[in-house]
Design a protein around this nucleic acid. Structure first.
Lengths: 183, 183
DNA sequence: GTCTATATTCCGATAGAC
DNA sequence: GTCTATCGGAATATAGAC
């Protein structure tokens, strides 16, 4: 099957979000797919290659989601973003930023750059969403939209981490306050 | 020297915050201290033993800090907490919760339990601080003190992670808003 | 209390057959 | 496109000398 490659990326994505990039091995991918570790190396010669493919897939997912919400009111767009984090929370996953950023110093240079790009684009999208919503009178907040976007993204990221340790109610409490503070 | 043990814990603490628990090795500790990896095993038979010692040290540090601020006004206490995170940010470190929570599923059971204990006590302290400050009219916020404490801790935690990827201005922006929102 | 030496296991990665 | 087989290295950990 040609989509073995896609299955590998999908599995690696899951493993990064559940165990962390440095804590999973090619064996963790080969075994569930019933292939050999050499087969994984055929598609992704180095682990960094696999890591890059995962981040690229995340960027695509994000862009696809964003495109689907484009025509909605800004508060609905933001709710969709929060829902995508809630979905991760329910499956006991953290987001790619929450998983890779603690290991940032140990990542190869190309993965670091791609992760920076991903983070910047997420924050840029939230910033734009807040700006547009503010103009329409949907959102109300002090300070710049960029600063507030940083606050929202950092909260969503951290609430997944805290939920893992403290239980899922942590996510609900935090995400609810985030919206209440600006609506 | 007897304080070799303390040096090992201190170095392990640094390594967890810069590289992550699963991404450092006994060699990373033995080399800088100019001892053999077997010497590290003498003090800490397993890596989990070392990890437990690090979390215990963090709990002690936190308790010591808290005790020193006890007599200060609550806003000053909170500023001290934020300053301790800022100090980590300047040294390009994340906090122990930010570092260990993404790897939570890979940690031995005893480390998981100790980490839960640490997180719960930090949040409990912030909750109490907010409650007392609210009674005195120092803090003003909607919702319960517990929910607000969760929001503040998650922000401090995540701002260190984001700072690593996006630059240190991320921390300043976020911590400033945190205080502005409740003063 | 620290060492040498080594056991064991696992990892990422490569060569070459099919 | 996937396999077998294997390499070289690094990791955690242990046994036993000093």
């Amino acid at each position: 099957m040609q989509d073995t490659k896609e299955k590998i990326v999908g599995l690696a994505d899951q493993l990064i979000k559940t165990k962390g990039f440095n804590s999973f091995s090619y064996k963790d991918i080969a075994d569930p797919l019933a292939i050999r570790n050499a087969a994984v190396h055929y598609y992704f010669p180095t682990k960094a290659d696999l890591g890059m493919a995962v981040i690229d897939q995340e960027i695509n997912f994000m862009n696809t989601g964003i495109a689907n919400w484009e025509t909605l009111p800004e508060d609905q767009q933001l709710r969709h973003l929060i829902a995508s984090f809630e979905n991760k929370c329910n499956r006991h996953m953290v987001c790619i930023m929450g998983s890779l950023s603690p290991d940032y110093n140990t990542l190869p240079e190309n993965m670091q750059a791609r992760l920076r790009q991903f983070s910047a684009s997420v924050i840029a999208w939230v910033t734009k969403c807040l700006e547009n919503g503010q103009k329409k009178g949907i959102f109300h907040f002090k300070g710049t939209a960029g600063d507030r976007a940083l606050l929202i993204v950092s909260n969503l990221l951290a609430s997944l981490l805290l939920s893992r340790v403290m239980g899922e109610t942590a996510f609900e409490n935090i995400s609810k306050q985030l919206l209440d503070d600006i609506l």
